[in-house]
Amino acid sequence: MMQYEKLLDEASSLGLSVYERYLKGQIKGLYSDNVIWMNKSLPTYAEKYCILAEEMGHYKTSVGNILDQSKINNRKQEQRARSWAYEKIVPLSKIIQAHKERIINKYEFAEFLGVTESFLERALERYQEKYGDAINYEGYTICFNPLGVIEWFEDI
Rank of each mutant, 00 (worst) to 15 (best):
K106D: 13
Y107L: 12
K130F: 02
T61E: 07
S83N: 09
Q97S: 15
S62P: 06
Y19A: 13
K106R: 12
W37A: 07
V35C: 09
I104H: 13
I103G: 02
N39V: 06
I51Y: 02
E78T: 07
E129G: 05
H58T: 04
I27T: 15
I36H: 05
S41F: 01
A85F: 04
G148F: 01
S17K: 14
Y107H: 14
Q77G: 01
C50M: 04
N73C: 08
C50K: 01
D68L: 10
K94E: 14
K40F: 07
I66C: 14
K88D: 05
I27D: 03
E111I: 13
W152L: 13
M56Y: 01
Y59V: 01
A98I: 12
I135K: 08
A11T: 12
K76H: 09
K28L: 13
E78W: 04
Y127D: 01
Y4S: 01
P91E: 08
G148P: 01
N65F: 03
I135T: 07
E138L: 13
M1I: 08
S93K: 10
E20H: 09
L113I: 13
D155A: 13
Q77P: 00
L120R: 09
E78R: 04
E47C: 03
R80D: 03
N105Q: 04
Y140Q: 12
E54K: 05
Y137I: 08
K6V: 14
S12K: 14
I27F: 01
Y19Q: 10
G148E: 02
I96G: 04
V115D: 02
I135V: 15
I104F: 05
G64C: 07
K60S: 03
K48I: 09
A85Y: 03
K40R: 14
E108F: 10
N145S: 15
A11K: 09
Q77A: 05
D68Y: 11
Y22S: 03
N136T: 15
P146G: 12
E55V: 06
